[in-house]
Design a protein around this nucleic acid. Structure first.
Lengths: 207, 207
DNA sequence: CGGAAGCTTGATATAAGTCAAGATCCGTGG
DNA sequence: CCACGGATCTTGACTTATATCAAGCTTCCG
């Protein structure tokens, strides 16, 4: 379990540990410091779809400020440390906190727009386009969070995780990665990603 | 164009008319009275994905209260009439309006959750499951908005619209509908939908 | 050092897409 | 009121992208 519940506590979670379970009431949101997390949905026959990814620096899940009910479970995809921020602390109208509320609404909007784009990918893009879209999204977000050095960044997701995000089987995802590597578009090994030419990748991701 | 811009005006739009264009600033949100609308994304080669549907009674788009920038274009799918609500009117802290703000945040949360579920459908469900999921979603929302009589409601979307929502080709969508009709699970003709057994449909939609 | 988790590859199956044509519905102008 | 034409729906034959099944390989942690 994550640590004790104290204001603005730093919690840590082991890989695959729950940050939040479906149906729970969550009276605090997390700000990830190190490590990645995701929310997902499991169908009764075991199919899994990852609904959103949380990278270091991201809020998880901003909408808990509006409703504390957890709709999709959240787990750590890696060893993880996160700051826990009680929602009442945010809700107050104090100036400093108003700033905080603004950034959380902003995170909500971004999540909404990212989800919409993701619907577009899943709804009408090919396997290769989807994979490129996802990599572009991750790379861009990592850069925005100041986590890109040179043209590389961490990428701790397994191919199973990636497959469950882009809606492909692990086998097919692997083949797509293989061709992208062969084309020199990405380097991806030992939990790290390098993108020599982001624009080229964006072009393949389909406008 | 929709009507003049006056507070809480009722606007009307013809089918395929824009309610909002990509990149615009939108200083008012709509509350649909009659008719349906959608937001969508067009890829450069013409592929279209519908990102969300707006039914009578729905707010379109609640997030404009937080950011007025239109990310996805919105068009009328039918002849449409809607109440326009200026966003400043909502933002004020007055008691009556605070109630309004709450219902708009609520609409935002629902949109977020619906989108997440839609990612699940597109990411890991079969064609039949997706179609059933969509029909259940529409029927349930129509019922919540008090627009179901008996077990039927309006359903003015063309099969092209439906196909662009569920991420299938119109041809394949048509075949799926055919088998659902044959199984007695839906009746769908001349812009109207009848669902004799919603639970059966939900079961097929996959938990 | 052993074993599980993760990755890679080949052979084959299948769901959904594409192409093409015809049928039906419906609004509009004569 | 009817006739025409475009939008919408339906169906058939065929193709293709992705899934499935299966096996071997590699990495890395305990």
């Amino acid at each position: 379990m994550g640590n004790e519940h104290e204001p603005n506590d730093v919690c840590s979670f082991r890989r695959h540990e729950y940050l939040a379970r479906e149906g729970e009431m969550q009276d605090r949101i997390y700000r990830l410091e190190e490590g990645w997390a995701c929310s997902y949905r499991l169908l009764s026959d075991g199919r899994r779809q990852i609904v959103s990814l949380f990278l270091p620096g991201d809020f998880c899940e901003p909408q808990w400020v509006l409703s504390q009910r957890v709709v999709h479970p959240v787990i750590a995809l890696t060893q993880l440390s996160a700051q826990a921020i009680p929602v009442q602390e945010i809700d107050r109208g104090r100036a400093a906190e108003a700033e905080g509320l603004k950034s959380i609404f902003n995170a909500m909007l971004q999540a909404l727009n990212r989800q919409a784009e993701w619907i577009v990918s899943l709804g009408c893009k090919t396997a290769t386009e989807r994979v490129c879209s996802l990599i572009c999204d991750i790379f861009t977000r990592m850069r925005a969070n100041d986590l890109v050095a040179g043209n590389g960044c961490a990428m701790p997701l397994t191919q199973y995780d990636l497959a469950d995000t882009v809606g492909l089987t692990p086998v097919h995802l692997n083949r797509v990665l293989k061709t992208l590597r062969a084309r020199g578009l990405i380097e991806l090994k030992s939990r790290s990603l390098r993108v020599p030419d982001l624009d080229a990748l964006k072009r393949i991701a389909a406008a």
